[in-house]
Design a protein around this nucleic acid. Sequence first.
DNA 1: AATTCTTACAACCGCATCGAG
DNA 2: GCTCGATGCGGTTGTAAGAAT
Length: 249
Amino acid sequence: MVRAPCCEKMGLKKGPWSPEEDQILVSYIQKHGHGNWRALPKQSGLLRCGKSCRLRWINYLRPDIKRGNFTKQEEQTIINLHQMLGNRWSAIAARLPGRTDNEIKNVWHTHLKKKLKHYDSSQDSKTIQISKCDSNVVIENESGKNNHSTSPQQCCSEMSAVTDSSMEKIVVKEEIDYSSEYFPTIDENFWSEELANEDVRETKEDADAHLPLVELESVEDSKVDGGGGMDFWYNLFTRAGDMPDLPEF
DNA sequence: AATTCTTACAACCGCATCGAG
DNA sequence: GCTCGATGCGGTTGTAAGAAT
């Protein structure tokens, strides 16, 4: 049994929003707020489903939305956060005031992914490797709530601090600048798209010498989807000793 | 000038999660 | 503990605009 899409209900409009619809939605929310998205279309007179209204508001009409091109710093931040969190766009968006998860996702797919792929292809020989990885890490946040992660992706996305040898407790402590301070800097070649073949980063041997390996167990049963994936998991734990305490997501 | 291709981004869909009852 | 409705999230699609041919 397949559930019918919500907007297929009789009379509900789909597709691009008209300025009139935007106006109705904005003025309704300004007056009444958006306590109940489901009820909002009925009460405001819009022929849209609540989901569509919510999306339109969050991604486009919200007054605090920052429009226009992303700055280099914002792009750098996205890259760094994506390396940390994988495809958790909402978590990334939470660190970029005025930007939406949808917008960030689009920028990633249309610009950054291509750039990085191009950039990384010139960096292949510098890939860092690790042989073992723990697939069952317990994470504890500030509220004391434990999260059991069975996948690297999931675990990494919730990881918020250095893992010690027992890998049991992770506590959030402070805000950090995601744009550069704690991450390897992407050089000018990335932004210029003219990738140098040599002397861009340290060699693999140099990197291995600087990055402490962490003893971890097999990840055979781990599910890894797109985004950060296993490489990131490896890199995160490889670099664990260099990572700062990170805030909660 | 017309057509095709590419890019960017808004919007949709369906699954996951959460909370109330 | 279970069910169900509401909301959040990420993947994907649709389409308008611009570029290339």
